[in-house]
Nucleic acid binder design. Structure first.
Length: 876
RNA sequence: GGGCAUGUGGCGAAAUUGGUAGACGCACACGCUUCAGGUGCGUGCGGAGCAAUCCAUGAGAGUUCGAGUCUCUCCAUGCCCACCA
């Protein structure tokens, strides 16, 4: 008996499949399409570890099934190759980032090819290819034209190690995600994209994506962070300026006893001369500037702040004068950078007021804590009845006393608590009934919010306002290895875009690409490149020297695969109409709030300018669960626990690795690698190989049970692949192969089994299909499916494979094991016809000895019959 | 602090969506083969008990003829966000 020689077989079919162009994307528009996409990797120097291919294998299985079902399948791969790591590596090793990147791509590609994936390499893309980034630049110019790309000198997040600005999204625990340095705020000229203009659509359209996982959608909702409230205008005594604050609790305006500005708020500068304690204020502002984000947002630190002496704001609700502060607990980049402080009903304001009052010597200048909400909620809670351990209903306040008898006065305690809340001694952030609030008195929180906003709008003192946590996208990086921003600064015409015909603006070859350290990109030093002519007036002008962030190129790459060679348009709209949207997108959950938001934004923009036909790029998205190392930690060079797929494929074969990674557990769940489990997968394949070697001895037809099991398995595998439940596919096929070993199978039926196995173990299946079963065409060949996506049976005599179809008649069981329970406990299982009637079932069940025993001396109260499943006799 | 997951044998996990809990695989034990450096085959394998049977799906309650599955409370773990007014 020959052995399954994976090395030889894999090599052989890779060659033949290449020669036959098996993976070239079909373009015959009469066939239905299926676009299945992996997140393209950043080709790092470390190469792939066994965790990376998990998602690729899954999409490959889906792609192969769809191929066999007769779809045109687009399953491409490419490289997200711009980015800081390549540049940092290049700096360290004195290699041009392009050279390092090319080398890494070669390694990655080589590793991927060994796994036997259906990528159509004719459509390979690379974000660093000028013919690619031409269109990244083009989209940027379009955004500029629509006012969505703008220059700003607002302070941005700056990484002192990478020497570049970053977006909020590039931070991890307040540190630079690349180098883990603490970042600072630094005012710099930056290009920014007004993604916030799309916040509402990005949020609302999530509801149009039923194919997305809820957890990912929820992460996006939180990231966008919509909150509804009001902007309220506070006049300043004796000044023309107005402080506008944002609040989600306009109902508490009567309780506002001071106003706080972020230290960065530009208004402060206007009052330099009037502020009594300017030197103190200035010092605080400077200290705030120096703080890293991490220091500033540390929740444990005390609330600090300084009063602007001499400046008084006027509470628009009651015209009372209230003091104004600056404090770094107010963030400059959210809302209006100013808040109304309601210490009685906001934890932070309360804490600040308490701190401030403690330090104060002049007692009559203390910040007032004015309660405007009657905490009925708390009162209700104390009076609310719940059941205790014995099932008796009791008041919560009584229960508290009974569970903590040593604290006799808890009931009184609750009362005291209520009084404290009412007196403003402790903070109460919940809802309630308004008090001390003039025209709002007696209203609930919700009613009061509404009424206050109406009043503010009528009086011209404020308005309804929706705010988002989502910030505009800081889009420039002061580094070399990225797409040049295609803009020109002309002393006469201002900042203007490069003419479309002159795109792409190529990244110049340079000797030194070290960051300049001055906050300018290394490109600034290349005078040949920087000095250019103005596309508008033709006069001398300078190029923009900042480059784009890594996220730019990946925001639209899925469109390039559709039309990879197009040089006159971003994508051919007819082709796009056929292929879009991506039917199934698979990738890491870590991209839920960055790449996936950027890409959705970019796509919506392209839709708005008429460049694409659909508003959402990805119909379905599923995240891939990580594969951890055998020690349960993440695979990392640092821990020395990385497993290279090349070694696994060499030893056990690509098919064994594919089957194992799918069998490990639910696809979205993270799971530790276990080489023993891999051996199990390999054994499964060896057994199938052995069965195929015995085929000549197996003649005639399969018996009924095998036939039924085969068709059940076809059904299960077809459905579970579509649901990404690969682990149960594999186990179903193991059950089938165990049964075949025991009972044998006809050659035709065995062929069907090999067809459903093929997406998982393509090399083994192709070898058996062509060499042992004697088919001329590939097991992955197919006819177009029948209308409405119905699966195609293999055609007789044509040698075309296709995806097997299950016979609904064959999967019906003739006899079943009827479960007989007495009082819900299993007492017998009896073999009966599947369509047994209730009366017959009752009769048979009551004849059963064991059932009789359990019914002895009891009255039958009730019998529940579930056809085809179970009978439960309830007896007393 | 907020949001989202998850919790079932020694381990990875199944469970037709409210109907036999532990399929399938790994590990382990015993036996038979094999000149065995991840070999092949067979048997066993949640706990207790000689057995009939009983107990078991993080803990506790509830709904139900029946709960791993639904509801509530709590605990633990993981991920994401976090001074967002």
């Amino acid at each position: 008996m020959d052995k399954f020689n994976h090395l030889e077989i894999e090599k052989k079919w890779h060659k033949i499949w290449g020669e036959e162009n098996l993976y070239r994307t079909g373009e015959d528009k009469s066939k239905p399409k299926y676009y299945v996409l992996d997140m393209f990797p950043y080709p790092s120097g470390a190469g792939l570890h066994v965790g990376h291919p998990k998602g690729y294998i899954a999409t490959d299985i889906l792609a192969r099934m769809k191929m066999m079902q007769g779809y045109n399948v687009l399953h491409p791969m490419g490289w997200d190759a711009f980015g800081l790591p390549a540049e940092n590596f290049a700096l360290k090793n004195k290699v041009h980032p392009r050279v390092a990147t090319e080398k890494n791509i070669a390694t990655f590609k080589n590793q991927l090819e060994k796994i036997g994936l259906t990528y159509d390499w004719e459509r390979e893309i690379n974000t660093t290819d000028p013919e690619y980034y031409k269109w990244t630049q083009w989209a940027f110019i379009k955004m500029w034209e629509k006012g969505l790309a703008y220059e700003s000198t607002e302070p941005i997040i700056w990484c002192p190690t990478c020497q570049t600005g970053l977006a909020m999204e590039d931070l991890e625990n307040g540190k630079c995600e690349r180098c883990e340095s603490e970042v600072v705020r630094k005012p710099m000229r930056q290009w920014v994209i007004k993604i916030t203009a799309y916040a509402e659509r990005l949020l609302a359209d999530l509801d149009k994506l039923p194919g997305w996982e809820d957890s990912i959608k929820e992460m996006q909702r939180n990231w966008i962070g919509k909150s509804e409230g009001a902007e309220i205008r506070f006049k300043i005594r004796d000044k023309k300026e107005v402080i506008t604050v944002f609040t989600t609790r306009p109902d508490t305006l009567f309780g506002c006893t001071y106003v706080v500005l972020a230290p960065e708020n530009p208004l402060i500068g206007n009052w330099k001369l009037e502020i009594g304690n300017w030197s103190e204020v200035e010092k605080y502002i400077n200290e705030a500037k120096k703080k890293t984000d991490l220091q500033r947002t540390d929740l444990n630190k005390d609330k600090s702040g300084v009063r602007l002496e001499g400046i008084m704001a006027i509470n628009p609700a009651n015209n009372e004068e209230v003091p104004v502060f600056i404090a770094d607990y107010v963030l400059p980049n959210y809302g209006t950078g100013a808040i109304m402080a309601v210490p009685a009903h906001d934890e932070r304001d309360f804490e600040f007021a308490k701190k401030y009052n403690e330090k104060l010597q002049i007692t009559n200048d203390k910040l007032k804590i004015k309660s405007v909400i009657d905490p009925v909620e708390l009162e209700n809670l104390a009076q609310y009845k719940i059941k205790d351990n014995e099932g008796r209903e009791k008041l919560i306040s009584e229960l508290v006393v009974s569970y903590y008898p040593e604290k006799e006065n808890i009931k009184d305690g609750i009362k005291q608590l209520l009084n404290k809340v009412k007196n403003g001694e402790i903070v109460h952030i919940g809802d309630g009934i308004l008090i001390n609030s003039d025209f709002l008195n007696g209203l609930s929180t919700a009613e009061a919010k509404k009424k206050m906003i109406e009043w503010l709008e009528k009086e011209g003192k404020g308005k309804r306002k929706i705010n988002y946590k989502l910030n505009d996208w800081v889009f420039s990086r002061q580094r070399y290895w990225g797409e040049p921003i295609p803009m020109v600064h002309c002393p006469v015409c201002g900042t203007v875009p490069v003419a479309e015909k002159d795109l792409p603006v190529r990244l110049p070859e340079v000797e030194h690409y070290e960051p300049s350290g001055t906050g300018e990109s290394p490109l600034a030093n290349i005078s040949d490149w920087v000095n250019t002519t103005c596309p508008v007036c033709g006069g001398p002008a300078k190029r923009e020297t900042n480059t784009m962030p890594q996220w730019a190129g990946s925001s639209w790459y899925y469109l390039r695969y559709i039309d990879p060679k197009n040089s006159h348009a971003l994508v051919d709209k007819d082709k796009e109409k056929y292929w879009s949207p991506v039917d199934f997108y698979v990738g890491g959950a870590e991209h839920a709030t960055r790449h996936l938001i950027y890409a959705r934004f970019w796509h919506k923009f392209l839709f708005d300018i008429g460049a694409v036909n659909y508003e959402e790029p990805f119909a379905k998205f599923t995240h891939v669960g990580l594969i951890m190392a055998e020690d349960g930690r993440k695979m990392s060079k640092r821990w020395g626990n990385v497993i290279n797929p090349d070694d696994i494929i060499e030893k056990f074969g690509a098919d064994a690795m594919r089957v194992y990674e799918m069998f490990m557990g639910p696809f979205t769940q993270s799971c530790a690698w276990n080489t023993n489990g891999l051996v199990g997968a390999r054994k499964f394949l060896d057994r199938i190989w052995t069965i195929s070697g015995n085929m000549n001895q197996v003649t005639g037809s399969s018996n009924k049970e095998i036939l039924s099991l085969l068709h059940k398995t076809i059904k299960k595998v077809s459905e579970d692949i579509a649901d990404f439940k690969f682990n149960t596919c594999v186990s179903a096929m193991m059950i089938l192969s165990n049964a075949i070993e025991e009972r044998g199978i006809s050659q035709d039926d065995f062929a069907k089994f090999i067809q459903i196995l093929a997406p998982f173990a393509p090399h083994l299946a192709e070898e058996i299909w062509r060499e042992k079963l004697g088919n001329k065409k590939s097991i992955f060949s197919s006819n177009p499916p029948r209308p409405r996506g119905a699966v195609t049976p293999p055609e007789e005599g044509t040698n075309i494979s296709g995806w097997p179809k299950f016979d609904p008649e064959l999967i019906k069981d003739e006899t079943i094991n009827l479960i007989v329970q007495v009082n819900g406990k299993l007492r017998a299982t009896i073999s009966v016809p599947a369509d047994i009637s209730e009366a017959d079932a009752k009769k048979l069940a009551q004849e059963n000895e064991n059932v009789k025993k359990w019914l002895e001396g009891k009255e039958i109260a009730k019998i529940i019959f579930v056809p085809g499943k179970l009978l439960n006799i309830v007896a007393e």
